[in-house]
Design a protein around this nucleic acid. Structure first.
Lengths: 329, 329
DNA sequence: ATGAAAGCGCTAACAG
DNA sequence: CTGTTAGCGCTTTCAT
């Protein structure tokens, strides 16, 4: 079903069909009428690919993610809400990830889509600073602060501090940290907040209590096992995100530890899964939907040639739920 | 940054660059080497649009949704998990919806992408039966059962019956129903289950107790107000999905009604939001992630030319939580 | 008012 | 082994 099929069926040239379909002037009303009928009858719809190859603008916004997991899908909901009704279409793309392109996937995805398929992009948790894409780009939870594209993120240091201070306030002294994706600024900042709070509470930093979790459940498993099998086991864990925190709790259960009686756990993000399980996770909430919406608005503004803020920071706040308690006596 | 730029910089023809990039035979090792260096230096990546226009296969699976909301994003998580590691890329597309294309969006999206951008598609809650797309298609929560593409859905009748029987068991007699999207088979089946259970319990069907909700919070508001303002107010509401159920609860609160003391509410779907609020919703759970994964597997099988089941039904089960109780005395 | 032709970036025959 | 050529579906001058 191509434009040629329509042209043939209507007895006109493809150029005429194109004009009719795109509402260009210079087509006789009668011809237009006939073409439209054929289009409707055949169910023809112009190919996004072909037209975007030729045109400059596609009216499509790309959302580049590594994977569709709770974090990115929350953002997606926010973006979808903000873009709805603007006439733009959304194209959320997750390129195939293999081990060798785990870093740099966003540059690849962007090159593949930019200039042709999408007019602008919001990139979720890029692993490298993406610049010179040729199209407007907003990064959410970016690789690094300034220098790169415009960004949206939450108060990572403040959130982490709130989490650790909560734990300290409960009486914990041996507080472990499961690190996030080390290529992300947010992970660095959360660890920084963790260290700052420890220092302020007069608790020495113990490198043995910090392990990588990579923001992923699978990467967290071993780290959690090691941490919870330590001779001098921590009484609390501050995980860099909810996925890690949730996995820490599972591992704790495997090891016969009760949460929060034997072990307190705090996460970060407040994805829906954090509060929908049997036990509700104490966590630092990022306003994910709003962050997505904000990023979309910024992109829309850039696309319109309008000015907009370049780096937006949103507040993060601690939500105390059921996985934290004073340490065992 | 196009293939011509690379060709020029490497001093070869575009054809040669194409061969190198796609790993075709017939290129001198030395030439290949040089081209690869230029590619790396320039950060060239082949355009998805241009190559898919020329090639037959793109290695991309399309997920067509009307909107990114909790239901579709849960499916997306399941699909993403199942497709990860297969080498396929995912492209979730949400076309611009206006009032006049609310029905039929999926046919439009499919026409725009099929044949060029995507090799196959899973369509979420299509409004019409999509056939003859020219590419393999699996529909989740389809417009209609057989006749159309292969499908995945849950036991809608059984789930609805379980919900209503639970309410009846609690002692409710005036049970209202907020309908789903009337163009969807699932909505029809849930209403059917509702009616059957009522009949079996010897409760007469009262048309005044059934209102449209369209599976959307916004569409539900007025219906809920009308229902809860009835002279002989229902003591329980079975909403066709969680989004509607959640909104019914909000409206109840606005009207000064307590849930579940004054009004019991049951939803359907068990999206994460159903159990993450202050009050956890009693609902009928569909295994959304699994449904997404199953649909992806079916599509992958079709793409491989392998056989697969044509219509998959997954179980639905009632989860009693905090929004249902016996009717007020 | 209509159509012929060029070209978007790329791949696949086919020559050389 | 390399380059020339045609063409994927579409839009856009430019003639007619």
């Amino acid at each position: 079903m191509t434009i040629s099929d329509v042209a043939r069926a209507a007895g006109v040239s493809v150029a005429t069909v194109s004009k009719v379909v795109n509402g260009r002037y210079g087509v006789a009303a009668e011809t237009s009428q006939r073409v439209l009928e054929v289009v409707a009858r055949l169910g023809y719809e112009t190919s996004l690919v072909a037209s975007s190859l030729r045109r400059r603008k596609t009216n499509v916004i790309g959302i580049l993610v590594a994977e569709f997991e709770p974090f990115s899908t929350e953002l997606l909901k926010g973006i979808s809400g903000a873009v709805g009704g603007t006439g733009y279409e959304l194209l959320a793309y997750s390129g195939a990830v293999s081990d060798d392109n785990r870093v740099g996937w966003e540059r690849r995805s962007l090159s593949r889509l930019a200039g042709t398929l999408i007019d602008g992009a919001v990139i979720v948790t890029p692993t490298v600073v993406v610049a010179g894409a040729g199209i407007p780009v907003v990064a959410i939870d970016p690789h690094t602060g300034p220098g790169g594209p415009w960004t949206v993120d939450a108060d990572n240091v403040g959130g982490a501090r709130a989490a650790v201070e909560h734990l300290v306030g409960l009486g914990h002294r041996r507080i472990a940290h499961v690190r996030g994706r080390t290529d992300l600024e947010s992970a660095r900042l959360r660890e920084q907040g963790y260290r700052e709070s420890l220092a302020e509470a007069g608790i020495g930093f113990d490198p043995a209590l910090v392990r990588d979790g990579g923001y992923r459940a699978s990467r967290t498993t071993d780290s959690a096992r090691e941490l919870l099998s330590l001779p001098d086991r921590p009484t609390a864990v501050f995980a860099a995100n909810d996925l890690s925190a949730l996995r820490v709790i599972e591992v704790a259960h495997e090891l016969g530890l009760r949460v929060p009686q034997d072990l307190s756990v705090v996460g970060f993000d407040d994805i829906p899964e954090a509060s929908s399980g049997d036990q509700r996770l104490t966590t630092v909430a990022q306003p994910l939907r709003q962050m997505g919406a904000r990023a979309a608005q910024m992109l829309l503004a850039m696309l319109d040639g309008a000015g907009t803020e370049e780096h937006v920071h949103m507040p993060a706040r601690l939500i105390v739920r059921e996985t934290t308690a004073p340490p065992p006596a």
